[in-house]
Design a protein around this nucleic acid. Structure first.
Lengths: 250, 250
DNA sequence: ACTTACTGTGTATGACGTTCATAGTTTCAA
DNA sequence: TTGAAACTATGAACGTCATACACAGTAAGT
């Protein structure tokens, strides 16, 4: 059954499938080097600093040489999104809940270390080797919980989603989006104060009350790691409940 | 206390704060018209179709005229991200759990109706009038649950995050990312089959087993609305548990 | 009537992604 | 050993786009 279905070229390269029929000069680069260079630039100057020419400059080739390894800039971004991901923590013997807590927090930290991921991630189902390794470990950790494969995947992806959105929130409130920083709105406290000022109590009764009472102020504000824990426990509690349900018959 | 802290110009316009000191010709446009035009283009042709010149063309002015209303394209995107959001459902009398379920699903549907939102949303804390209205309604729905304001906000933002990530997953698996569609990978089933083929069982034991067992196939696959319900209930169960804890003393 | 403040236009610029023809390089076959 | 074939990196060129700026036109204030 010859379905035309196979991985796009970039992904083939990401999976180390470069057949490389040998003739002509040896390639001076490979996707890994290019990706690493791009990641370094993004870490240093943000995603805006990543252009085909800046990446090419860093690896020491002409701009257009990159197109031998990558079909488009978009492909490069795809590769970067998988390339920054380190190896997942080892589930070795940890109870599922403990492991998933570590696992989720680690994902959040990756994003915080490389904020540009937020702009790159299409929140698409993972197809790269490194991201999929994370998924695999989550499934492993859920072995013996009585959940079926579909449920396990759902659980993992819910947690990943939480890690991403929390990282996004934390990042923009801490480092601030350029837009807000320009206006002097930095940090959760300022955010709350501005809102308190702008919101009309008639149309936003609950919210304006909350803001005026200063929820966003203080040391344990919105950005805090405790807040991550809070939402995470919400999810984990839900999962635990599901597992308990599965264990007790229905 | 003259803090330099005030809303950026776009946001002021989004909040209807256009002082408009009157002199010279009457403006032929306003931010709302421009935003609406941009949204129409994005809905029809995707975000790639939205350029300053295409938007200008649609409202019938020269490209650079837009800069009288918007400081940058980025500002326009910000405005679009709030502009597409309709009014939130009415909490009137619904129990918090029912309302938040509706509320969250509605947010998911917005994103699915305007997939380009995924590329625009920086998952930043909301600052636009429409998004904040949603937040307000969630807080209202949580009145009388015993949660404090900070917790309510956390709950709401967790749910919003879930709606977004689920929408992203659903969208890319259903409509497919251009990258994947080009390679004939469409829908969850194809996704699963490709993975099953690519994954090495040694390095991805749990995941390759799951894929080979065909989790992704069938009518109730990953994309299904039931899967949304699944993750949502995970969260709501967690929230309910929290509320119960607060109600019973500690 | 004259100034003033503001609006829309046209031109220009610089950055960027991408295409293409070309020159150079290594391997394979004869 | 020679020549073709396959492949690499390059440089020039193109089209698109966001944006800056100077200018002409227009309504209100004096």
């Amino acid at each position: 059954m010859a379905d035309g279905r196979s991985l796009p070229p970039v992904l083939q390269r990401m999976w180390g499938r470069e057949p490389a029929p040998r003739r002509g000069p040896r390639p001076r680069l490979d996707l890994t080097m290019i990706t690493a260079a791009a990641v370094e630039i993004a870490d240093a100057d943000g995603l805006a600093g990543v252009s085909m020419s800046s990446v090419a400059g860093r690896v020491g080739v002409a701009t257009t040489a990159l197109y031998r390894y990558v079909a488009s800039k978009d492909d490069l971004l795809t590769s970067m999104a998988d390339g920054v991901v380190p190896a997942p923590p080892d589930p070795a013997g940890l109870p599922w809940r403990d492991y998933l807590a570590v696992w989720t927090r680690a994902q959040r930290d990756i994003v915080l270390d490389h904020p540009w991921l937020l702009a790159v991630t299409r929140f698409a189902p993972p197809l790269g080797p490194r991201r999929l390794l994370w998924l695999d470990r989550a499934l492993t950790a859920l072995d013996g919980t009585g959940l079926d494969d579909g449920e396990k995947i759902n659980v993992a992806s819910s947690l990943t989603g939480y890690a991403l959105t929390d990282a996004a929130l934390t990042h923009t409130l801490a480092s601030g989006s350029p837009e807000l920083v320009d206006s002097g709105i930095e940090g959760a406290t300022a955010y709350g104060e501005v809102l308190a000022e702008v919101l009309d109590p008639e149309t936003y009764p609950a919210l304006s009350a909350a803001m005026r009472s200063g929820v966003m102020g203080g040391a344990e504000g919105w950005t805090d790691a405790d807040d991550f824990r809070f939402g995470l426990d919400l999810l984990l509690d839900g999962i635990e409940q599901l597992i308990a349900r599965r264990a007790s018959g229905r």
